[in-house]
Write a protein that binds this DNA or RNA. Structure first.
Lengths: 304, 304
DNA sequence: TCAAACATTTGTCCTGGACAAAATGGCACC
DNA sequence: GGTGCCATTTTGTCCAGGACAAATGTTTGA
């Protein structure tokens, strides 16, 4: 069989991997990888394998590894390393569910998946559903995709169904005038919205009044929105890929601009990489911590 | 009052405007705008005004104007030009509604907005709601934002509420096994999802079986998904900002890879800029055309 | 043991050059 | 008057190779 050898130019690789053109050229200069063929016009022509390895590298860098340490490994070694870093499987209460969902995805049956998710949510309640079902499931789906067991479009279908389920649940909950009021959003370069949605779903049952602005709100507008809606807490979500530098810079700037009475929360995969303490910012590295953070806030809050 | 003069480096401007670093430097070289101050390290420091004018330019370029023609205009002239290009307001059935919604947004009352949208949807039915309410409303909100009458965070709140309303409606409709089956998604560099959602909402009442993969499905996976789900139609959504070149290239490639029996639809603002005819691709430049395109498809379809 | 000073790694920005795809304008031809 | 084709201009993307600063890692000294 003749494999169709697709080629990518540097712009396509940037889109596919999230690594900037500058970085791709710099790695080639410094480490000798990737070293793509050139076309007639001496422009780089990356192979599918290049892109695969770059994606695997990006994934590991998103959890804190540095390029120099991993650039010489093969893609298999990179994937193995990613598997090894994954938290122990012991914590999964229902490993059977994982393989069930994966096989649903592979058989492309959206309806069954949708019903399964809805049923689980009913049985477990929203918070337990997220913590005990969705979080492990997300990891399982991500791993399966990385191992090549799951196609991209199958993963997209999963994300879409999950989003529908979560939005339905959030929407169904009565929008009461609760305390605290929480503003939920992300910084402008964030592309992933599931984290935000899960955070909102974790808070809604706690009688929190959530105001979600969706993704990519400019810094200034976060401040304006916080004032306009008179929120008590501003909560930001950062996916694993978010640049540590941009995040710390942005959070510091936000902290300076927000009134002291407003609490600032930063959550999401990225926050696990943070080493320095950030004064005036509460880090919430996992969804489970939301409830305790909420408890702490309520313990300190004095109704005006 | 001392205006806080924020400065942007070239990376920030790229994120804010969607214009690549290469383009920003090239415009400076060729046209002399923008010509930002340099900091100690001779790095470009763009002003807020620069970014504002760049955004206004980008918006006009997204509807087909070329930089050379507009780069010498002031930001006011650019905005005036954008207003002038807007379709006549006569078509609006309920101009009062627009100002109502805008004032709701300015008063930051999400609940009222949500109820208003839900009520209108009930009264008009999903399709008329989209065509007669949402399309003009989207334009009104976009214009108000451009004119500076609406803050970014207010526009975000609108988008978020609208998305909730649409998803609820789509979800409420029984997912029947209809014909045709339609695969809905976008190309990888598309960032806007509202168009996709509106398209889905237009189709659901027509007893179409929609399978949405959300945003950013790689080309190859669109083909795989089309085969796996045995769809009759693949429908792609392109926002105004989408690069014409990437779109035509991608559509041609997709057409080559899809079986001839699968119909290919391309819709969204961008498709209004297309001049050449694209063999094997149906252009759907506005949402209203979806129903007629569907009728044509059904007229030709022979149950196997 | 901790912290300050130094070294290395890494990403982002810079200049200025090159080229091809798309848009435009002119021109012959129907 | 319209229509297809070719030359020209416009515009975006890519390239090489240099510079520097922020983040990280390592050693030294109290």
């Amino acid at each position: 069989m003749e494999t169709q050898q697709m080629h990518f130019n540097i712009g396509a690789v940037e889109r596919e991997t999230g690594l900037s053109k500058d970085v791709l050229r710099m790695w080639e200069r410094r480490y000798g990888f990737p070293k793509p063929r050139r076309d007639d016009n001496s422009e780089r022509q990356y192979t599918v394998d290049d892109v695969g390895k770059l994606r695997a590298m990006k994934r590991l860098m998103d959890v804190g590894l540095r390029p120099g340490k991993i650039i010489k490994l093969t893609q298999e070694e990179l994937n193995a390393m990613a598997d090894a870093r994954a938290p122990a499987r012991a914590e999964h209460l229902t490993p059977a569910l994982e393989s069930d969902v994966l096989s649903m995805l592979k058989s492309h049956d959206a309806t069954v998946l949708q019903h399964t998710l809805a049923n689980l949510m009913m049985r477990q309640g929203l918070q337990r559903f997220i913590l005990e079902t969705i979080v492990p499931l997300n990891r399982a789906v991500g791993d399966a995709w990385m191992r090549g067991e799951l196609q991209v479009f199958e993963e997209h279908l999963y994300t879409e169904q999950l989003q529908t389920a979560l939005r339905t649940a959030i929407n169904a909950s009565p929008r009461q005038l609760g305390v605290p009021r929480v503003l939920l959003t992300t910084f402008p370069s964030e592309h992933h919205g599931l984290g935000l949605l899960m955070a909102e779903a974790m808070m809604v049952p706690e009688a929190v009044q959530c105001i979600s602005l969706g993704l990519q709100t400019p810094l200034e507008d976060i401040c304006r929105a916080a004032a306009a809606h008179q929120v008590h807490i501003v909560a930001l979500s950062f996916s694993a890929a978010f640049s540590l530098r941009q995040a710390t810079e942005g959070l510091a700037s936000l902290r300076r601009q927000l009134p002291g009475s407003v609490t600032l929360w930063a959550g999401g995969e990225m926050t696990r990489r943070v080493r320095r303490t950030m004064p005036g910012t509460v880090l919430i590295p996992e969804l489970a911590s939301i409830t305790s953070a909420l408890r702490s806030w309520r313990a300190l809050w004095q109704p005006h």
